[in-house]
């Protein structure tokens, strides 16, 4: 093993590739006059839904309506303002059978309708992919224009998991026809706070 490492590094050190500078991260990068509108449009293009919610006080009610509509009896919430229904243990397998998970996004990205969510050590990671339906709470003010601005706000100094999620799970592997709900969530609804 150590031999492999040394051999590969030696082979790479011998090679004659021309030195090239890193170009840096400065733009000109795209910006939008109405980020919220673009975010909505791109999220919908990715088969997600966007529902405006006036303030935190209305979140529980909005989630309850979605749970009813999706006939989800077990709700696992990582958002303080929304209560879970049916307890879940720390075992990632136990998330199987959760009808609806409620997550909080740190960021939204206008250009692609994605939200950035992290595990934050709060729940097993399977909460991103195993539940039948996902609800993500996002503050309208946390939407950035594009991915450069998104990465400028993220830090990866610690152990952890983070994911840009754009819409529900999907596939087009059979004859290029789009099917929603391949393995992960069948629907993804973003509750947009402060945009009603």
């Amino acid at each position: 093993m150590a031999a492999a490492r040394e051999e590969i590094l030696a082979a790479l050190a011998k090679r004659t590739m021309a030195p090239a500078e890193h170009p840096g991260s400065e733009g000109p990068w795209q910006s939008f006059r109405d980020r919220v509108a673009i975010f909505r449009e791109r999220l919908e293009a990715a088969a997600g839904e966007c529902v405006p919610v006036a303030d935190e006080g209305r979140l529980a009610e909005a989630v309850a309506a979605i749970a009813r509509e999706r006939s989800a009896s077990r709700v696992l919430s990582l958002v303080a303002a929304v209560r879970s229904i049916g307890a879940a243990s720390r075992d990632p397998h136990d998330v199987d059978g959760v009808g609806l998970a409620v997550l909080e996004a740190q960021l939204g990205v206008a250009e692609n309708g994605a939200v950035w969510i992290t595990d934050g050590g709060l729940a097993p990671r399977s909460v991103f992919s195993l539940p039948e339906h996902l609800v993500v709470v996002l503050r309208a003010g946390a939407i950035v224009d594009q991915m450069h601005d998104a990465y400028a706000r993220l830090s990866f100094s610690e152990r952890g998991f983070g994911c840009f999620l754009s819409g529900p799970s999907k596939t087009a592997d059979i004859e290029q026809s789009l099917v929603i709900g391949a393995h992960g969530a069948r629907t993804l609804t973003v509750l947009l706070l402060g945009d009603a």
Binding site: R42, E111, A114, S129, M147, F161, F164, L165, S169, G184
Partner: peptide, 24 residues
Amino acid sequence: AVFLRLLARSATGQHLTTYTSHFH
């Protein structure tokens, strides 16, 4: 940011892959 803006658009015409997962 540079690669992800290009990758899914070039691959399937999506703006981003659905799950773009970062494991640290």
